[in-house]
């Protein structure tokens, strides 16, 4: 049905690409291992965004990360948007395509956020049908990202790791594990972030995300973390990355910084910290990991 033998992203640090970093990035003699772009920013007909992306794709492995497909939505997937994704993936031939376990669209109104889903059998069937449609349309395996949660649904009958495992089992898709999202959700909903990682289907993880979060409080004065992508990755999230890599072995690790974007070198330093984490994976664990996912590309 789809090609499962694509070249995977290298198990190196990457960063979310920001156009303001273009010159510093291409002039940097020690840049990052790969780049990720938001699909929707490269769906114009031409101009500088497309030209820069074409040039960057000659220098770096590129991953396409969609933020607007509304895979969890109750309505059918937007066929025009699927067409645009296929067009982008066809000319760019990215190393990876990923989207979110979330919804954002209804009746042609797009709510520019990743909205939460109840983890029920009905949601499971719908999400799997949509992932099947995406993978068939794009002719490639996709990765699905775990969300950051601020609340839970009384209707949910599945834990999130089990829900994601069942999605991978039914669709053959891989997972994008955002460890900042895990830490944010665990803090906000009062579960153990390490327990979540321990229960996660790590064998399906094709990419790891890191990002910064903001601190707020809820009505009870309890901590409420906001997944803002507007600052450095927090220390407990780095610790959670170490825990994850020790269990999963080397994986492509991406640093996201989408608001209050800093100078290139600040972002690159964050990526260097991810490189340190990858280099520090215990050898004994490394022996047992799936070598395929760690294989350097090209």
């Amino acid at each position: 049905m789809f090609d499962t033998h694509q070249t995977p992203l290298p198990a190196l640090p990457g960063v979310g690409y920001k156009p303001q970093h273009y010159t510093a990035l291409v002039d940097d003699p020690t840049p990052v291992g790969w780049l990720e772009i938001h699909a929707e920013n490269y769906m114009g007909a031409g101009g500088r965004p497309i030209a820069q992306l074409r040039e960057l794709s000659k220098r770096f492995p590129v991953s396409v990360h969609g933020v607007g497909l509304s895979i969890g939505g109750e309505a059918r997937l937007d066929p025009d948007h699927l067409d645009r994704l296929r067009t982008l993936c066809n000319w760019l031939n990215p190393y990876s395509f990923s989207e979110h376990l979330a919804w954002s669209t209804h009746d042609s109104a797009f709510f520019n956020d990743l909205l939460p889903l109840p983890y029920t059998n009905a949601t499971l069937a719908r999400v799997c049908a949509h992932i099947d449609e995406v993978q068939t349309c794009l002719g490639r395996r996709m990765l699905l990202e775990n969300p950051s949660s601020y609340l839970a649904f009384s209707d949910s009958t599945w834990d999130e790791p089990d829900f994601l495992r069942e999605i991978t089992r039914r669709t053959g898709c891989g997972l994008l594990l955002d460890v900042n999202n895990v830490f944010v959700s665990a803090t906000n909903l009062g579960f153990s972030p390490r327990g979540y990682i321990d229960a996660f289907p790590l064998e399906a993880v094709g990419e790891i995300h890191l990002g910064g979060h903001d601190d707020d409080t809820d009505d009870q004065g309890a901590p409420l973390l906001i997944d803002s992508h507007g600052r450095e990755v927090a220390d407990p999230v780095w610790a959670l990355l170490d825990h994850t890599l020790a269990l999963a072995g080397p994986r492509p690790v991406l640093v996201e910084w989408d608001t209050d974007v800093p100078d290139w070198f600040v972002l690159r330093d964050e990526a260097a910290r991810a490189a340190d984490a990858l280099a520090a994976i215990p050898d004994a664990q490394e022996m047992s990991v799936n070598r395929d996912s760690a294989r350097l590309a090209r």
Partner: peptide, 25 residues
Amino acid sequence: AGLHDGAGRPAGRRFNVYRNNVLVS
């Protein structure tokens, strides 16, 4: 009504995170 925090209390202002995210973006 079916939205709550980790301890089963009503979601309250937690819901505002989504309202804010949409509007601010």
